[in-house]
Amino acid sequence: AGLSAVAPSDSTEDILYSADGGGSIETVGNVRTTTLRGNVRIQQGLIVIFGDTATLEQDVSSGDLIRVTVEGEPARFVRNAEDSAETINGSSTRIVYYNQTDTQSNSQVLLSVVEFQGQASFTRGRTALECSQIKHIVETGATDSPGPCSGVLAPIE
């Protein structure tokens, strides 16, 4: 039977995850790492990440989620459209999803960051980007990559 549960996250929504195969939990020091295998699906709000294996690292004391790492052939990331933003699709051999305080603004706002590593691809609206690695900030929609990259911007119909 698959494993599904809800992990608390201090960004607004909780994270749901499930997997077909078994899982294992291991705690080292203050970090508890949950490893899931077999058709893993991790969802938080509009974001869903699929992959073959995933590891969730939580802070034992606060229960907060530190980092989710999903690997697959490839691992895939989908953020469904909202009225203000278009659907985003991404993939890479490894996807790392974590929160990070916003260094530019001083309001200590928490940003959720998705890092696509290894044959990363990122498609939003008319733009499709393929690079060795891509970093995407969900709240601002910004992406960044050290290159090498090739991008395709579809023509306006």
Binding site: L129, S145, P148, S150
Partner: peptide
Amino acid sequence: EIETQTNVRQ
């Protein structure tokens, strides 16, 4: 179509 070896930002 865009090709580059360097940094790409959006």
